[in-house]
């Protein structure tokens, strides 16, 4: 496969998201704009300007009409995908580290940083799906994470729960209606932050990546750890691939240690694991810095990775990827 390199950012990538149809890619970096790209050829559709700090996160609503972003300038913003217009700005006392729309695009959550005496909060706002409508200022729910700050969060199936990953390596489940803490389970090693949380297609389970060098597949309903993927490097991101039962992990040693080692030792590769058998089945090299974010195309045709090197690499899978099967999988297919 020939990856397409997108050089729209001057600084380290922070998050990449595909839209639901898999034709657009949104990328954010520590420079102060969001880029939108066509996934099929890497053409840049446009950039979104307005933030005045590093942008940590981006998410797109299910109809691809609006995107939300969170930044170190203490704001969460809503944008019109088509024109790049800033539709709404919500102000917070600290930086916004994570945003995510719920399944039907009517609610948006934001995770704020713990800093300057403020605790980390998970804030929910209502979204009017109409682009031209006025968006409400009101925060319909605020969950205060007083034990350990939340680093990532997302909406489960039917917007029933809010799942959050914490700095201490635990994952909690909150009731999305009233914000009650239902469960808190330590899934990763103590005090290794959960760095990413991405959902399966139906949002019944999710994958977490952590600095403890493992990624875990966890159910949304009772936070049961289904699978553990062990790697040899701190992980920054993990994604579940549709169509094939794989997961993609991205990581690499911390950016500050990079100059002291060779690119090979830095382990700047996307790692593919079999989702069920937990075996590593291959790696894709290319970045010359740690991978900060990976995203799988919802149509299953490819994936994109963003690194500390400032590049987004969009990959379209070859036939060999789709043909790969375990012996038992092949047997089963032949019997059917």
């Amino acid at each position: 496969m020939r990856p397409v390199l997108l050089a729209g950012h001057e600084r380290a990538l922070t998050q990449i998201r595909y839209n639901l149809d898999g034709d657009l890619i949104f990328s954010t970096a520590k420079d102060q704009h969001i880029c939108a790209w066509y996934a099929h050829n890497g053409e840049r559709l446009g950039t979104y300007h307005g933030h005045v700090g590093a942008i940590w996160t981006v998410d797109v609503d299910p109809t691809s009409t609006m995107i939300a972003s969170g930044s170190a300038d203490n704001t969460m913003r809503l944008w019109d995908v088509k024109t790049g217009k800033n539709l709404k700005t919500w102000e917070f006392p600290t930086a916004v580290k994570r945003v995510e729309f719920n399944e039907d695009g009517t609610k948006l959550l934001g995770v704020t940083e713990k800093r300057m005496g403020y605790l980390s909060n998970i804030v929910v706002v209502d979204i009017n799906p109409d682009v031209n409508a006025e968006q409400s200022d009101e925060k319909i729910l605020t969950i205060v994470c007083d034990e350990s700050k939340a680093t990532v969060a997302g909406w489960s199936y039917l917007s029933k729960f809010i799942i959050a990953g914490h700095e201490d390596g635990s994952v909690s489940q909150y009731d999305a209606k009233n914000g009650d803490l239902l469960y808190n389970v330590s899934v990763h090693e103590l005090n290794t932050p959960v760095t990413d949380l991405q959902w399966s297609n139906d949002r019944t389970y999710f994958i977490t990546a952590s600095k403890d060098k493992t990624a875990k597949l966890i159910t949304a309903k009772d936070l049961e750890v289904l699978k553990t993927y062990v790697s040899d490097t701190p992980l920054n991101s993990a994604a579940i691939t549709p169509k094939k039962d794989f997961v993609i992990l991205g990581g690499g040693q911390a950016a500050m240690d990079v100059t002291t080692t060779s690119a090979r030792q830095g382990k700047f590769e996307a790692r593919f694991y079999h989702k069920i058998f937990e075996d590593e089945i291959g790696r894709v090299r290319g970045h010359f810095g740690p991978l900060n974010t990976v995203a799988a195309d919802p149509t299953g045709k490819g994936y994109a990775s963003g690194g500390e090197d400032g590049y987004v690499r969009v990959h379209m899978f070859d036939k060999g990827y789709f043909d790969f099967m375990y012996e038992v999988e092949r047997d089963r297919q032949n019997r059917l």
């Binding site: 397409v4 050089a7 050829n41 794989f246 291959g282 070859d318 060999g320």
Partner: peptide, 11 residues
């Protein structure tokens, strides 16, 4: 937008 070098990826 540039096209990168070919990568062989066979699981």
């Amino acid at each position: 937008t540039t096209v990168g070098e070919n990568i062989i990826f066979r699981p």
